[in-house]
Design a protein around this nucleic acid. Structure first.
Lengths: 124, 124
DNA sequence: GTATTTGGATTACAACTGTAGTCAATATTA
DNA sequence: TAATATTGACTACAGTTGTAATCCAAATAC
């Protein structure tokens, strides 16, 4: 369980989002999915290659045109990032983070209500 | 308001934590505060210099031995990091993040209770 | 006042990132 | 089949980061 997820850089994360939604995809399909991001196709290739080298992405080489797919679930990666983020910035507790958001009115009334509901529901 | 905080790297963040707690401090005092972190003093100097160059830290050069102090509040930096983190990883909403934590039972009963209380109190 | 320590300035150097470009083989098109 | 386009492999190159070391001047210790 909880194999440690390798580090995924910011640009790489964009690629991953596409793969998590539609994998497997060829490089070209990823390029198309990211048309709005103004990256040159080669850049996307490089990122795919790096993700592959890092073993965050797998490659199917059965056909001439390879296809790529994630080797970790999105939620797994999110959780890994979240943990390291909260540790680093908020001393390790979600509470401090949420406390700050609440104090600084960074949440809308609606959002707070949703959060309350989520907590209630789980509460029991 | 909300001048954009420059990027603060992971190691640099450790330095900042010390400065936020005790600034102004000389380089040497920072070194002492970070004795447990096993960084060579020179490394800490380098990080202080970089933070200074980035204008995240200010320097008082009135005495031969300089002293350093933060130019941004901790909460300001935390918020900046949190925003970019949530945008990048959770599509921009705190809700998705908290939802995931709740679903995956990443919070203890006690933590959830505290969160509930915080939300209640603010609620009205 | 000489030797030594301390602190600031400068330099080092590899890994990781962002952002591509070149090259060569294969596939497709005319 | 000859020209062209696609795709994968490899290379490029500067900026950031982690992690220091060297050099020199001033201060301090003998």
């Amino acid at each position: 369980m909880a194999k440690n997820v390798p580090n995924i850089s910011e640009s790489e994360w964009e690629i991953m989002k596409v793969l998590w939604e539609n994998a497997p995809l060829t490089a070209n399909e990823v390029v198309e999915a990211l048309a709005k991001a103004d990256w040159k196709p080669k850049t996307i290739r490089t990122l795919l290659d790096r993700l592959t080298k890092k073993k965050v992405v797998g490659v199917n080489k059965e056909h001439r045109v390879y296809s790529f797919y994630p080797l970790y679930a999105e939620s797994e990666c999110q959780r890994a990032e979240a943990k390291s983020f909260i540790d680093r910035i908020y001393g390790g507790t979600m509470k401090s983070m949420l406390a700050q958001f609440i104090e600084e009115d960074a949440l809308s009334e609606e959002e707070m209500m949703e959060l309350r509901q989520m907590l209630e529901k789980k509460g029991k």
